[in-house]
C-alpha cells in the first residue's frame, strides 16, 4: 500500500505541469476567500480574455525557450502586427489580406532575429532586446504615438479573431486553446518536437546525431514571432484600434508564464500546457487583486513573488524527476 502511494506520488511529480497547476489552485482558493465576486463565470470569462492574448504569446515564447533561445521582441511584434493591419485597412485592403500580411511581417521579424543570433552567435537575449526597442521605436514614429483606430465596415474577420462569440467569451480564447493543443502535440508527439528538446537540451549532441540545430532554432524564432503577431491581432479584434504602446512588458510576462509553467531558462525542458497555466495564473492574479480591492500597483509585485516561488518549486520537482 505504502509502495502504491509512493508510486502515485512519483508519477504525479512527473507531470511537468503539477507545480503550476497546484499554484493556480491555491491562488484561486485564496482569491475566492478574499472576494465573493471572484469565483463567478463572468469574472472567469474576463480573465480568460486577458489571458488569451498573453497566453498566445507565451506559447510561442515557451516553444522557443525549450529550443534554448529567447525572444524579447514579442511585446513589440504584438503591436506591430495589428498596426500594419490597421494601416493597410485604412487604405482599403481587406482585413483578411491585411491579417496575412501582418503575420508574414511578424514571421520576417522572427526570421531576422533568428538569423542574427545564428550568424553572429550573439545571445538571443541581446539581439531581441535590440529588436524590441527598434520595432517599438518604429511603431511610435509611424503612429506619432497616437492610437490608430480601424473605422472600416469589414469587421466580421476581426470579430472572428477577437470578438465575442458566446456567453461573453471571446474568439481569442478559442485560438488560445487551439494553439495550446497544437503546439503541445507537436512538442511531445512529433519528430520535430523531439528535435526541439534536443536542440535546447544539448545543441552539440543534437548536431552530432544529425539534427540541423540552426534550422530548428530559426523555425522556432519564426513561430514565436508569428504567435506574437497573432496575439496582437486578437487584441485588435477586441478593440478595433491599436495603441502603439500595446504589449509593453508582455515579453516579460510571457517568459514568466513559461517559467511558472516549468520551462527552463537554459532550454531543453518545458511544457506548453504549463505555459498555458502560467499565463492563466497571471490573469487570475490581476483580476483577483483588483476584486480584492488591492491597488493595482500590487499586481507586479505579486507576480514577482509568485514567479520566484514557482521557480523554486519547479526546480525542486525537476531535480527530483529529471535530474
Amino acid at each position: 500500500m505504502k509502495g502504491g502511494i509512493r508510486l502515485f506520488y512519483s508519477r504525479l511529480l512527473r507531470v511537468k505541469e503539477i507545480g503550476s497547476l497546484s499554484g493556480l489552485l491555491i491562488i484561486i482558493i485564496i482569491f475566492s476567500l478574499l472576494s465573493g465576486k471572484f469565483l463567478t463565470r463572468e469574472n472567469f470569462i474576463g480573465i480568460f480574455t486577458i489571458t488569451s492574448e498573453l497566453g498566445i504569446i507565451a506559447i510561442g515564447v515557451c516553444f522557443l525557450m525549450i529550443a534554448g533561445e529567447f525572444d524579447l521582441s514579442v511585446g513589440s511584434v504584438f503591436a506591430v502586427a495589428p498596426m500594419i493591419g490597421a494601416l493597410l485597412g485604412k487604405i482599403g485592403v481587406p482585413m483578411v489580406g491585411a491579417f496575412f500580411v501582418s503575420l508574414f511581417a511578424s514571421a520576417v521579424i522572427g526570421y531576422f532575429n533568428g538569423l542574427i543570433v545564428i550568424k553572429t552567435g550573439i545571445p538571443s537575449f541581446i539581439v531581441t532586446l535590440g529588436a524590441m526597442m527598434f520595432y517599438r521605436g518604429v511603431l511610435l514614429a509611424v503612429s506619432g504615438g497616437f492610437t490608430i483606430t480601424f473605422m472600416g465596415e469589414d469587421t466580421a474577420f476581426l470579430d472572428a479573431l477577437g470578438g465575442k462569440i458566446f456567453m461573453g467569451m471571446r474568439a481569442s480564447g478559442i485560438w488560445f486553446i487551439a494553439a495550446t493543443i497544437i503546439f503541445s502535440i507537436v512538442l511531445n508527439n512529433t519528430k520535430y518536437g523531439n528535435h526541439v528538446f534536443a536542440v535546447g537540451g544539448n545543441p552539440g549532441t543534437a548536431k552530432a546525431l544529425g539534427i540541423n540545430v540552426n534550422r530548428v532554432k530559426l523555425i522556432n524564432f519564426v513561430l514565436c514571432s508569428v504567435m506574437a503577431g497573432l496575439a496582437g491581432f486578437t487584441m485588435f479584434g477586441r478593440f478595433h484600434s491599436i495603441d502603439p504602446t500595446a504589449g509593453s512588458l508582455h515579453e516579460l510576462e510571457a517568459i514568466a508564464s513559461a517559467v511558472i509553467g516549468g520551462a527552463l531558462l537554459t532550454g531543453g525542458y518545458g511544457s506548453i500546457v504549463g505555459a498555458f497555466i502560467g499565463a492563466f495564473l497571471i490573469g487570475v492574479m490581476r483580476s483577483g487583486l483588483i476584486l480584492a480591492g488591492a491597488p493595482s500597483y500590487w499586481y507586479q509585485g505579486f507576480i514577482g513573488v509568485v514567479l520566484v516561488i514557482s521557480v523554486i518549486i519547479n526546480t525542486k520537482i525537476r531535480k527530483a524527476v529529471a535530474g
Binding site: F197, A198, G201, N202, T205, A206, A208, G268, Y269, G323
Partner: peptide, 21 residues
C-alpha cells in the same frame, strides 16, 4: 561520441532514437 553522446534532460528512449525517430 566521447563527449556528445546524450541529452541529459531527455528520456532514454528519446535519446536512443534521437535523429532517427
Amino acid at each position: 561520441y566521447q563527449d556528445l553522446a546524450l541529452v541529459n534532460l531527455m528520456s532514454i528512449s528519446r535519446n536512443f532514437f534521437l535523429g532517427r525517430e
